[in-house]
Computed example of a mutant assay.
Amino acid sequence: MNAITAHGVTLASRTDWSVLRPLLGQSIVQTLQMVLITIVIGGALGLVLGVVLYGTRPGNLFENRVVYRILDILVNIVRPIPFIIFLAAMQPLTIKVVGTSIGTSAAIFPMVVMCTFATSRLVEQNLVPVDHGMIEAARSMGASTFTIIRTVLIPEALAPLILAYAFLFIGVLDMSAMAGYIGGGGLGNFAIAYGYQKFDQAVTWTAVIIMIVLVQVVQAIANAIAKRLLRR
């Protein structure tokens, strides 16, 4: 007599990897697509916004209390919103921009928006400790604001910024998992549709382990680069 689980089938009989393996491969590709596009676009926009936040702070490169206050409030409003709620709130705008609220492309748009605001605060926080003396020295030599940002500000904060972006990768990976709720695909959708909903722990933990490995690889690379930069 075959061993029967509470749901009527054994774990082995439920997990048909000949069917699930191609779906798992597709899910990994979708996750990497969502994460990489979000990190590249949202990370770049967030870097610019973070520099503006830093620069407009009182006493900084292009101080502007009004602009700083507006941006500061906007970032503080968006950042705390749980991403699953943010997905729902962004649905009308997502439809206008992407043309649909379902699928990988529809998931990427709100991910980029959230990533931009999250990155901006991380960038600002890592630029604040930069020695003002170096900035003033560059100013005294006639360097333009853009030159100071490019040759002094960013290089001096580069190691902590790399670690911040590694931390951001984890957050974006988490967002990509929640995107499965709107049919965004990826490992999150794979774990929910073929693991959780079918009571198959093998499938669920396969997705979990792959995500853990992705995080460990990215964190190890970021640590190595940051360590090398700090030794210079």
Results as ranks from 00 to 15, higher is better:
Arg150Asn: 12
Ala137Tyr: 00
Gly142Met: 06
Leu127Tyr: 10
Met134Ala: 13
Leu187Thr: 05
Val130Asn: 02
Ala193Asp: 10
Ala164Glu: 10
Gln125Trp: 03
Cys115His: 07
Ile192Pro: 09
Thr116Cys: 03
Ile149Cys: 07
Ala118Asp: 04
Phe169Val: 13
Pro129Arg: 01
Met141Asn: 12
Thr116Leu: 03
Gly185Ser: 10
Gly142Val: 04
Ala159Pro: 05
Asn126Phe: 03
Thr145Val: 10
Ile192Ala: 04
Met178Gly: 10
Phe190Trp: 00
Gln125His: 06
Val112Cys: 04
Ser120Lys: 05
Gly142Cys: 05
Ala179Phe: 04
Phe190Ser: 03
Tyr181Ser: 15
Asp174Lys: 11
Glu136Met: 04
Thr119Ile: 02
Arg150Ser: 12
Gly183Pro: 13
Gly184Tyr: 00
Ala191Tyr: 00
Ile192Asn: 08
Phe169Cys: 09
Pro129Gln: 02
Glu156Asn: 14
Gly183Trp: 05
Glu156Gly: 13
Met111Glu: 10
Gly188Glu: 12
Phe167Asp: 09
Ile170Arg: 13
Gly188Phe: 02
Ala191Asp: 00
Ala166Tyr: 03
Thr147Gly: 14
Ser140Lys: 01
Pro110Ser: 02
Val172His: 04
Gly171Ala: 06
Ala177Val: 10
Tyr165Phe: 07
Ala157Lys: 06
Val130Arg: 03
Val123Met: 02
Gly188Pro: 07
Gly185Arg: 05
Ile149Asn: 12
Ala179Gly: 13
Ala179Val: 07
Val152Thr: 13
Leu158Gly: 14
Ala191Trp: 00
Ala143Cys: 08
Ala137Gln: 01
Ala191Asn: 01
Gln125Gly: 14
Val172Asp: 05
Val128Gln: 04
Phe146Met: 14
Ser176Ala: 14
Leu168Ile: 02
Met141Trp: 01
Phe190Arg: 00
Ile192Cys: 01
Glu136Lys: 08
Ala138Met: 09
Met141Val: 11
Gln125Asp: 13
Thr151Met: 05
Ala164Ser: 12
His132Trp: 13
Ile192Gln: 10
Glu136Ala: 09
Met114Asn: 09
Pro110Lys: 03
Phe190Lys: 00
Ile149Lys: 08
Glu124Gln: 15
Arg150Pro: 07
Leu168Phe: 01
Asn189Leu: 04
Asp174Gly: 08
Ile148Lys: 02
